[in-house]
Design a protein around this nucleic acid. Structure first.
Length: 275
DNA sequence: CCGACAACCTGTGAGC
DNA sequence: TGCTCACAGGTTGTCG
């Protein structure tokens, strides 16, 4: 589930309930997700000073009494989600693997497929691989039409795969990569280095538009984040082409096609999206 | 450099 | 009802 918008909505949902509070206890009910969880107890006794995001990773910033920082990088994989509860919090359900207890409030992580990961680090995770190797954030002002164009010029791989690998802009997973290409009217198999300048401009604009409207849609459910309906933000998601094989294109009515690109389902309108 | 493929897991829905 | 199969929003590693 979690592409950039879902992580951002999670960040905004968690922050007001947790910032400034101190971790009183960590409970890991599994030994590992995608990586081992034995580093988690290292945040006990630390105060959460900030909750940030880089690409699809939630970055928890902690401080001790001396102001020394520790970071927790949380990646939610395919099926991860966070919720917060106040005491008395509900009984642990299946697939709820981790509790970060902040006194009378708990942040609880659920992840049926366990593709997520959590790593405690004594350096900012954004400064070390793999995060340090990623391309720019979509809403970073340093990302311009021409820097985007220059990045796409570097590879002959299909533009959709480049969107997914985050080298030119981060945040698009399979849903939003499909949606952005539809919005920009660009064929997903078009080689990245063959996009015209206007196409690049349209694509960057489309990525920003698709991601920000998804954040807005998820943001509308933020008031419910604290409690049983938490993290429900992205279930109302409306798509134009994703998972709509055979359905009419919302612009021209041509049936949406599905192909496989880099082992991922790829949906597009064969008439609206040009090579 | 690139693409193809497998792996990590569980859940869900389609088809029989 | 129950079986089997394909497939799922992500990432990482290997191999040719």
């Amino acid at each position: 589930m979690p592409e950039l918008p879902e992580v951002e909505v999670t960040r905004r949902g968690l922050a007001p309930h947790l910032i400034g509070k101190t971790v009183t206890e960590v409970v890991a009910r599994v030994g590992a997700l995608r990586g081992f969880l034995d580093c988690l107890p290292n945040i006990e006794g630390l105060r959460l000073v900030s909750l940030e995001r880089r690409a699809k990773v939630l970055i928890w910033v902690f401080e001790n009494d001396q102001g020394a920082r520790t970071w927790l990088a949380s990646h939610m994989g395919m099926s991860g989600s966070w919720r917060v509860y106040d005491r008395p919090w509900p009984e642990v359900q299946k697939h709820e693997h981790v509790d970060l207890v902040f006194g009378d409030t708990v942040a609880r992580y659920r992840d049926p497929r366990r593709f997520g990961a959590m790593t405690v680090m004594d350096a900012d995770p954004r400064g070390v691989p793999p995060l340090s190797r990623l391309g720019p954030e979509p809403f970073d002002e340093a990302l311009t039409e021409s820097s985007f164009f220059n990045n796409l010029k570097k590879t002959h791989r299909s533009v959709k795969q480049v969107l997914l690998d985050g080298s030119a802009v981060v945040g698009c997973g399979n849903i939003y990569a499909n949606e952005a290409l539809f919005d920009a009217r660009i064929h997903p198999t078009k080689p990245a280095d063959r996009l015209s300048r206007p196409q690049c401009a349209r694509l960057l604009e489309a990525v920003r538009k698709v991601l920000s409207s998804a954040i807005e849609a998820g943001g509308s459910t933020l008031r419910d984040f604290h409690g049983a309906d938490g993290a429900s933000g992205w279930f109302a998601l409306q798509t134009s082409v994703y998972d709509r094989e055979g359905e009419p294109c919302p612009i021209c009515g041509t049936p949406i096609r599905r192909i496989v690109l880099g082992q991922r389902s790829t949906y597009f309108c064969p008439k609206c999206q040009k090579k």
